[in-house]
Design a protein around this nucleic acid. Structure first.
Lengths: 340, 340
DNA sequence: CTGAAAGCGCTTACAG
DNA sequence: CTGAAAGCGCTTACAG
């Protein structure tokens, strides 16, 4: 492969001039610039990122750490982040801790440390003190998506408020027998995100002076199948069942709807369901939900990283200021209605 | 951050010895090895991958190019690939062409070319001649997942056979009025994968001497919602409807099942559905399907890459690609039964 | 088994 | 505006 020397030789200038011409930094005469461009093109030259990074200390490479990939929220965050990074000419190095401590250790102790990254985005991961310390050691910008980390730039939705709003919607429809399906701690994702949503739920009920039935506070594993089982049991209790349910994720809400239908209940007449997420399938299910746009969150995380890197050459999408919550959207469909 | 020099100084040896001790290559006395290990640990030393790569020509970094992330198959391929790579101490650089030519060009013309990778995995992408040429220029091992590429090591399932098997299953149950729901070309994924599955379908019907009804050959966009619309129309045709349907993906099969139910049909009594994929949700839907284990495919792609890189990481003389089909699995559940 | 030294391919003060 | 040169932090023949 052609190196910068070959280009310099062919263009009849020094390597320094080639570097300046190609990077656009520093003054270069129009003539030199053109000669370099031509020579580079003729030789099919592409610069070595390793060499460039070593010399300049900048990698144009962002690391992103996720607890899993094959779940709706994370796949969509990645989708948004990759597109935005691609747009800016950055590479993305993907680390998947897979909820396994062994993988997680490997990521934080080895992979992340190797100075190949300009910055790091963590998604829904509660870093331990040693992990945070490690990252600080490396001295790279860090943005946390989906949860609060001490002294770290964070992008997140207002889980408490989302759950409270969803609950208020059910209450305003006239429901008083309302259940909550939260998520158990999975993937080492322990931001108490489920807890914040549960708090919002209880707060809204409290405001409406509706008693919380502890039997109707459930947990599943954030999957459709897991929710199906729980809700099926919930609705089959011979001592009575709720008329409405708030699910902490849309995927769980799908399972809830399937369970209700399989039991012969008609929706929303017999049973109202509201989710949280904004999953594409929600439309088909007629699911009322609160959309949180994970793709846009991924983009926002990248935009914030670029700000931190001082890379403001691009018209940044309106990323919320550091201490604001990422905006969400109430989507009314047909899975919620007044109780029969 | 501590550099190799600092370690050498502290351990009282040369940088060459440090390099050899830490990499495990070359002879080093036990005493030196130990001194180096201790010094490195005390200083919290991690080597610079950029410098290491530049000097050695090896990156311990694999590129993977996907047409999208937020679709079941791709998310699961990535899940498998990241875990396997993590296990081996490799980084993964993720490129998402997003089905947009602009992104695709950026990936192939720029990002991929920058010599930061040891090898490349492409997923369900039919590379153009220039793209293949570019990749060859870089001279890195290449593995194609999900489709056949000329002179490229390939991992793929036998789409023709899968579709044929699924069709035979319906035929063996006694169905003669069988429809097929394929996938339109999306994401620039144009391996004629849908075509291969259609061919298998038609072949099996032909073997059974059952005529293909051209009205029952449908296309959707591989999404549940898209399939729902198509199947709803299919089943509402007043001139008669099929008693069974083969869907080219499980996600589409879910849409088909939802459509049939919404029309008041009972499954599988009135209508049998079989999918292809092995999606987790299939269990909940009782979907009979042919599982293709994308996570395992991702792992297999990584394993093949490692073979191509050779044990010491240097490309071996190209051995003939072991062009076997990736194994799939027939999963019988309750969505298929003899026609009423 | 070990070290001095060349070299990987760039970037960037520095001096002109 | 331009070039010579030092340096980024490693690896790896080469010679002991």
């Amino acid at each position: 492969m052609a190196s910068i020397k070959d280009v310099a030789l062919r263009a009849g200038v020094s390597v320094a001039t080639v570097s300046r011409a190609l990077s656009g930094k520093g003054k270069v005469s129009a003539a030199s610039r053109e000669a370099v461009a031509r020579a580079a093109k003729e030789l099919g030259y592409v610069l070595s990122y390793n060499a460039s990074s070593l010399a300049s200390g900048r990698s144009r490479n962002i690391g992103i750490v996720v607890p899993t990939i094959s779940r709706w929220y994370f796949a969509n965050v990645l989708q948004g982040a990759t597109q935005e990074l691609n747009e800016r000419g950055y590479d993305l190095t993907l680390y998947n801790t897979s909820g396994e401590q062994r993988h997680r250790d490997a990521v934080f102790q080895d992979l992340l440390m190797r100075q190949r990254l300009d910055a790091v985005i963590t998604v829904t991961l509660k870093l331990t003190a040693p992990e945070l310390h490690q990252l600080r050691l490396v001295g790279k910008p860090l943005v946390a998506l989906g949860g609060l980390l001490p002294e770290v730039s964070t992008i997140r939705v207002d889980d408490f408020n989302i759950a409270s709003l969803a609950t208020e919607h059910l209450v305003s429809l006239g429901h008083t027998k309302i259940a909550f399906l939260g998520g158990a701690d999975v993937f080492n994702v322990d931001f108490n995100l489920p807890a914040a949503r549960l708090d919002g739920f209880e707060y809204a009920l409290d405001q409406a002076e509706i008693a919380v039935n502890p039997q109707w506070l459930l947990d599943a594993d954030f999957t459709t199948a897991g929710a199906y089982q729980k809700v099926r049991s919930l609705l089959s209790n011979p001592r009575g069942r709720p008329t409405a349910l708030l699910c902490a994720s849309d995927e769980m809400a799908f399972g809830a709807i399937m369970a209700a239908r399989d039991l012969g209940l008609s929706l929303p007449g017999d049973f109202s369901v509201i989710g949280i997420d904004g999953h594409e399938l929600g439309e088909l299910y007629g699911l009322t939900t609160i959309a949180q746009h994970p793709g846009a969150q991924g983009e926002a995380a990248v935009a914030r990283i670029m700000e931190l890197l001082g890379e403001d050459g691009h018209p940044d999408p309106p990323s919320p200021a550091p201490d604001q919550f990422f905006p969400t959207e109430f989507v009314l469909r047909t899975s919620t209605a007044p109780p029969a």
